[in-house]
Write a protein that binds this DNA or RNA. Structure first.
Lengths: 245, 245
DNA sequence: GACTTTTTCTGACGATCCGTCAGAATCCTC
DNA sequence: GAGGATTCTGACGGATCGTCAGAAAAAGTC
């Protein structure tokens, strides 16, 4: 009885993963408009009704995708945060993580963007939104922790009413905006003189943290070497998969 | 003959504006999903076919909205760029402009976000996309001009392969990301300790430019006073409309 | 002003997609 | 293997998009 129920539950769980994977792929290949519930049902060879037993609407499904993405991101940030090094290096590790993610999982990024843009949230199930909420919060908290560590170690002094949230917000906004512009650029970025977003972002991260006087400044420390160490020690597998290093 | 044709053209032009205004309002009130061609047609009291004579698809219409927004932004940047002052002050003026716009025209921002997210671009008319392209470029060029002025006046020295585009990209990303997060935050930003996005952005702008060593640094100049001057001299009307100042 | 031609407008229509639900199919229990 | 519980199915109603044949209006001609 119990094992039977468990097997069934396992099947259901597997199918949910299958649906999400299929949707992810479809979203990347055919965009938001090309993602339809009928197509998903056809692809996984179940009926539409079955799909709807997992997700109450198309929007609900997309929110679930974005949550998967946030879970991944949260894991990456957690790993970045445990890097043995200076707070600023750990912050850099988080920045690297944030850059790895959309490259490793472009379809998830797409889902995230759609959620933020259209009024998807309203049509998704409450419970689903709560899950998204909590994963996003986890990411934010991890980053805040790094900044607070920098403050407590006196590498960073916050002035004029700036708070850890200020810096996290700045980094977050910049990263988010950059990925957004990159993935959906109306004008190809190269034409504007942006050849490699990672490099440009790197410049800007360093400038931003230098501007906050987060020690050691970029001029006093070889952060390029740090980046290499971080990729080797924390994200070696992922970096290898992307052909970096 | 000619005047008759012109009258007709004028009517058509007016109707186009009417459609765009209606769509704008609807987009803000009911979101992307709630914006339908039938509803627009009903509201303006023309048939759907007539609406389709102006815009080849719903996506096309949204692109047109985003272009309107970019035109406005481009105008604002142009005005900001003419501010009589230091390059960094002019840069700041552009930042202020970028902050005024979404507050003055929230529905346009919404359109812009939708475009970047969903695969709207593919379904819009080529010509329409070109228009969007060129307005976006205009904005970018204006900002680049300010940065280049700073370089030529030796207020700013670009190192390590950074270019004017690097800085513009950083500012643009941060601004874009911040507005995005604000307008569509899954988790309300206040709960994360971000009470006022403008203030937090201001901190981050200053830090970023300080980090690039753009003289005079925030510590050596009263940029708060500059901001007040800019709002008074360049954007007084808009600031008044928003109740700032 | 009456008739023709051209332009513009209309709304019914086919196609697509979403989300539902009554009934079929499968699984479980005894 | 009968009967009941659970799961699955796909046809269906409703909504929207975009089209297009024909109606209506405007412009042109005599």
């Amino acid at each position: 009885m119990a094992p039977t129920a468990t097997r069934k539950q396992r099947e259901i769980q597997e199918r949910e993963t299958l649906i999400l994977d299929t949707a992810r792929e479809m979203l990347l290949e055919r965009g938001y408009i090309g993602l339809t519930m009928d197509r998903i049902a056809a692809k996984i060879e179940y009926s539409k009704g079955t799909v709807y037993q997992h997700f109450s609407s198309k929007e609900d499904l997309i929110v679930a995708l974005a949550t998967q993405m946030n879970v991944k991101r949260s894991e990456f940030f957690e790993r970045a945060s445990t890097f043995q090094g200076l707070p600023r290096e750990r912050c850099m590790a988080a920045g690297l993580a944030a850059n790895l993610i959309p490259r490793l999982y472009p379809s998830w990024l797409r889902a995230e963007q759609i959620i933020h843009a259209s009024s998807v949230a309203e049509k998704a199930a409450m419970e689903r939104m709560r899950a998204l909420y909590s994963t996003e919060n986890a990411c934010f908290q991890t980053l805040s922790g790094i900044v607070r560590d920098a403050v407590s170690q006196r590498h960073l002094e916050l002035r004029d009413g700036a708070t850890p949230a200020t810096i996290v917000f700045g980094l977050w906004s910049m990263t988010y905006g950059a990925h957004f512009l990159e993935s959906s650029a109306i004008v190809p970025l190269e034409e504007k003189g942006i050849a490699d977003v990672s490099i440009e972002l790197d410049h800007n991260y360093n400038a931003l943290l230098d501007g906050f006087q987060w020690k050691p400044l970029a001029g006093d420390h070889d952060y390029r070497a740090s980046a290499e160490r971080i990729l080797n020690e924390v994200f070696s597998e992922e970096a290898a998969a992307l052909g970096i290093l």
